[in-house]
Amino acid sequence: MAGVLDSVNQRTQLVGQNRLELLLFNLGGAQKYGINVFKVKEVLQCPPLSEIPKRNPVIRGVAHIRGGTIPIMDMRQATGHRPLENIEDCFVIITEYNRSTQGFLVRGVERIVNMNWGDIHPPPRGAGKENYLTAVTEVEGKLVEIIDVEKILAEVSPLPEDVSAEVIEDSKRETVVCKHVLIVDDSTIARKQIQKVMQSLGCKTTLRKDGSEALQFLEEMLSEGKDPYHELLLVISDIEMPEMDGYTFTAELRANSRLKNLHVILHTSLSGVFNEAMVKKVGADDFLAKFHPDELAKRVNLRIAQLTGEGEKVEQ
Rank of each mutant, 00 (worst) to 15 (best):
Gln102Ala: 06
Gly103Ile: 12
Gly103Trp: 11
Phe104Val: 02
Phe104Gly: 01
Leu105Thr: 07
Leu105Arg: 03
Leu105Val: 08
Leu105Asn: 05
Val106Gly: 02
Val106Trp: 03
Gly108Arg: 10
Gly108Pro: 00
Gly108Asn: 14
Gly108Phe: 05
Gly108His: 13
Glu110Cys: 01
Glu110Tyr: 09
Glu110Gln: 14
Arg111Pro: 00
Val113Lys: 04
Val113Arg: 04
Met115Gln: 13
Met115Glu: 14
Met115Lys: 13
Trp117Gly: 00
Gly118Arg: 12
Asp119Lys: 12
Ile120Trp: 09
Ile120Ala: 08
Ile120Arg: 07
Ile120Val: 15
Ile120Leu: 15
His121Glu: 15
Arg125Leu: 14
Gly126Met: 14
Ala127Ile: 11
Lys129Tyr: 08
Glu130Ser: 13
Asn131Arg: 04
Asn131Cys: 13
Asn131Met: 04
Asn131Ser: 09
Tyr132Glu: 01
Tyr132Met: 15
Tyr132Trp: 15
Tyr132Asp: 09
Leu133Tyr: 13
Val136Cys: 12
Val136Arg: 01
Val136Leu: 12
Glu138Trp: 05
Glu138Cys: 06
Glu138Ile: 10
Val139Ser: 02
Val139Asn: 05
Val139Ala: 01
Glu140Cys: 01
Glu140Ser: 13
Gly141Ile: 10
Gly141Lys: 02
Gly141Asn: 06
Gly141Met: 09
Gly141Gln: 07
Gly141Trp: 05
Lys142Arg: 13
Leu143Thr: 15
Leu143Arg: 15
Leu143Cys: 04
Val144Met: 05
Val144Phe: 07
Glu145Tyr: 03
Glu145Gln: 14
Glu145Phe: 01
Glu145Cys: 08
Ile146Tyr: 07
Ile147Thr: 15
Asp148Lys: 06
Asp148Thr: 03
Asp148Trp: 05
Val149Pro: 01
Glu150Tyr: 03
Glu150Arg: 04
Glu150Lys: 03
Ile152Ser: 02
Ile152Tyr: 07
Ile152Val: 14
Ala154Lys: 12
Ala154Thr: 04
Glu155His: 11
Glu155Pro: 00
Glu155Gln: 15
Glu155Cys: 02
Glu155Met: 12
Val156Arg: 06
Val156Tyr: 10
Val156Asp: 05
Val156Glu: 06
Ser157Phe: 07
Leu159Trp: 09
Pro160Trp: 09
Pro160Cys: 06
Pro160Ala: 08
Glu161Ile: 11
Glu161His: 05
Asp162Gln: 10
Asp162Ile: 02
Val163Gly: 02
Ser164Trp: 04
Ser164Leu: 04
Ala165Ser: 12
Glu166Gly: 00
Glu166Leu: 05
Glu166Val: 08
Asp170Thr: 09
Asp170Val: 03
Asp170Ile: 03
Ser171Gln: 04
Ser171Val: 06
Lys172Ser: 11
Lys172Gly: 00
Glu174Phe: 11
Thr175Val: 13
Val176Pro: 00
Cys178Phe: 10
Cys178Arg: 11
Lys179His: 11
His180Asp: 14
His180Gly: 07
Leu182Asp: 04
Val184Glu: 01
Val184Phe: 02
Val184Arg: 01
Asp185Tyr: 10
Asp186Leu: 08
Ser187Pro: 09
Ser187Ala: 06
Ser187Arg: 03
Thr188Lys: 15
Thr188Leu: 10
Ala190Lys: 03
Ala190Phe: 05
Arg191Ala: 08
Lys192Trp: 00
Gln193His: 11
Ile194Leu: 12
Ile194Thr: 15
Ile194Gln: 05
Gln195Ala: 14
Gln195Tyr: 00
Gln195Met: 06
